[in-house]
Amino acid sequence: MTAPLDAPGKAAEAEPEAVVAGVSGKAIQGRSLGQIAWLRLKRDKVALAGAGVVVFLILVATFAPLIVGWFGHPPNEFHQEMIDPSTMTPKGGSGISGEFLFGVEPLNGRDLFSRVVYGARISLLIAFLATVLSVVIGTVMGVMAGYFGGWVDTVISRLMDIFLAFPLLVFAIALVGVLGQFEQQLGVQGDTLRILLLIFVIGFFNWPYIGRIIRGQTLSLREREFVDAARSLGARGPYILFREILPNLIAPILVYATLLIPTNVLFEAALSFLGVGIQAPTATWGGMLAQAVKFYTVPHFMFFPGMAIFITVLAFNLFGDGLRDALDPKSSR
């Protein structure tokens, strides 16, 4: 089990088993554990379906302008002619047609299909980048706490406790509002500012969840034989940290990052729903839902953005679950 020292290049793939549980699994000789994980994942049809949807969503978000160009109208373009001028609701109830695949919004007749498609961009972009931020902070803090122990561990662990004690959503709403006043200082405005703010707020509040897990993993890794071996061979702190411990953390980071993305999608949607997310006229799923509530007699308006959130979150959850099961031999599926 001292493989990593001999074959540093393959460290990540070589030790996934050590990783999630931190306890010995039964290693099958002759086949890399990464390969085993891949084989497991391939057999998990549900997880693969999740992965498929995730890829599809990423493609939709990336090529939103093209898709909307083919099947829809510009997302902010008004189509007043689609609206009943007295009740402000779409003519014929929803306005769903070959022209408007998901119908139109009440009041201004904007193409709901285009707005849902564009909403995917905001949602995924913020969820991904906020996750990256959480992972970076969480990993650094978690590794430091777990590896150095002592007072470093105490301080970081308390810090994580404090974060977990904060009424998250309330704080996030407040922070977005307060930080929004810094346009001048930050030199950015509009959507860019809001996107950065949301990434910061969401990512910043979620790091302790990753941090705790990484700390635990690091703690147990630190006591593992191969680390002892490396140490007895004269390896020093940084070497052990970067060559022995970090590579073994990649798998859990991957798993929890995948599972954090859907949480962040929901978080962003909640903030937009409460009116503190991305501002008009940019389309967001949460923002559309907030408006749809006021027009609850026009159900298609809440259905499409709501389902978009549901499908996205579900897909990431399915994929994340599958990934965890595949990488964790103790997993109970």
Partner: peptide, 9 residues
């Protein structure tokens, strides 16, 4: 996977 403000409404 469902946001509460969607299921609620």
């Amino acid at each position: 996977s469902l946001p509460i403000f969607f299921t609620g409404i």
